[in-house]
């Protein structure tokens, strides 16, 4: 899951080297924390949060497959 978000985020931002993704695994739910350069924050959130929402949708589809739940948190 971590790799998925990392790949998408790096392709969207201007500073891919500053993309950091951390996965905090729980028993059923994993929290994926995404950190990007300040200037890139808008790029991963998108207009009215559209990009962030799209990433969450894909993440939950991928999680269903392995019978888990994943939450994406974008950290400032």
């Amino acid at each position: 899951m971590k790799e998925l978000i990392k790949f998408i985020a790096q392709a969207l931002v201007d500073h891919p080297d500053q993309v950091q993704v951390k996965e905090i695994e729980g028993e059923q739910t994993s929290v994926i924390e995404l950190k990007v350069a300040k200037e890139d924050l808008g790029k991963v959130i998108g207009k009215q949060g559209r990009t962030a929402r799209a990433m969450r949708t894909i993440l939950s589809a991928a999680s269903t497959k392995i019978r888990k739940r994943s939450v994406l948190e974008i950290i400032e």
Binding site: L12, T51, A54, M55, T57, I58
Partner: peptide, 19 residues
Amino acid sequence: LLIGKQGQTLEALQYLVSK
């Protein structure tokens, strides 16, 4: 699974890849 509820997942994939 890839289409998702009302095509949501497909829409998300399309949006991100276009971007």
